[in-house]
Design a protein around this nucleic acid. Sequence first.
RNA 1: GCCCCGUUCGUCUAGUGGCCUAGGACGCCAGGUUCUCAACCUGGUAACACGGGUUCGAAUCCCGUACGGGGUACCA
Length: 447
Amino acid sequence: MMKPRVRFAPSPTGFLHVGSARTALFNWLYARATGGSYILRIEDTDQERNRPELTEQLLEELDWLGLDWDEGPIYQSEKLERHREVVQTFLENGFAYLCDDENREVEGTGLTEGLAVRFRMPQNKTISFNDLVRGEVVFNTDDLEDFVIWRSNGSPMFLLANAVDDADMGITHAIRGEDLLSGVPKVLLLLDAMGAQHPIYAHLPLLVNEQRKKLSKRRDDVAVGDYREKGFLPEAMVNYLALLGWGPPDGVEIRSLAEIVEIFSIEDVNKAAAFFDIQKFEHINSSYLRNLSKEDFMERVEPWIGGETSWPKENFDPEKFSIMADLIQEKLRTLSDTPRFVDFLFLDTPEIDENSWKKTMKDPQTVDTLLGYVAGSFEDCAWETDVLKHLVTKAGEKVDLKLGKAQAPLRVAVTGRTVGPPLFETMACCMTREEVLKRISDTRKSL
RNA sequence: GCCCCGUUCGUCUAGUGGCCUAGGACGCCAGGUUCUCAACCUGGUAACACGGGUUCGAAUCCCGUACGGGGUACCA
């Protein structure tokens, strides 16, 4: 049997849509699972999209996801002559005709400036094909109209370019979104007119938002780059995307792409649209984050603590951060969570979270007394995790609070939040006695 | 309007005529652990859209209805 040849054929819009990424992934998976070739083709026949910088971004995102291609990128805009040639043949053979901007047929068999070309739809002809995901799909040509294949400005239309290039490139399987399903009969007719073979189609279910509408740029967060900037890992992204419209037979959802390749089958893909659930995505991402080695984690998190930050750059202490990394890595859902877990170490005064303050400082009298005891005992103790913990426990006992409650106001005083890294270890390892006492005293003054 | 596609817990899915009193995961709820939790552990909640067939037997096959979606451009 011939080795499959699949392609991902995005139109350059300046960013990679998560739905497109999913399509790219499934093509890639199919190629890798079958030993076929995965080809990248840029569909830039629309002049507005024929700009290199729009494509650059696309390639960069695909690269980030690790979806390497075997051939290409092939630019459709460079195939203009071939497209023209096919249209010209269609004109000569009567498969297509010239028409003016009022959609009136114009006599002639030669491509003419200012005139478009329409493909002539045969009458009452049944067209069917066997979709790998959906089974047999049937259309009748009477429901279809003559469609433009060549613009009056001298450029090919999408369907024409698509059909010609698939044929020329020897594409065996067209795996793509369901939104392209109704275009298939037209492409099949074009292929027939060229005397070319039909590829096998597989139409993937659409990715939808909470309104069950196709994910759109206007309403939804659709750019892969956005998720990248939010601190999602590429391996988590492709893992999650693979779970949309497909499920592993053994139920193990979190696994590497290499493993997925082993068990992936295009026939197992679902028919129904899938909701892009950010919560599940975050769960998967946090799992990948937790499993990163220290070294790897430090490298990946760098942009979030070394770039634009809420603290003055000169205050940053890599050694302290390295200690903190061990304490917070397992708590993160995305890399962008990192700064707020450590910012209090590098800010002169911690940023106090309003809700945290309200929650823990409800009883100023008690808090003041408690923090008084804490400050007193912190004055000249050994500056060690266990000692600090012990002293806070003792201080708590004096105001009748267990450690769980007693540490809360102190945590807010020191870090600004009720949620954060382990407090005593953080203070002992990354803060000085003076800093801590200063924050306690500042807090008591604002009670 | 017309054409096409779809419909299993809130969500993503397993399920391809008996293993289904429908399994897993996320979420949610409860409990536990812990110095906090948005971390971790344990348990629980919750679904075959509806109506007809076919069959000894249907979530699984067929038909219809309802609902949802996609397409219908000289965009891709």
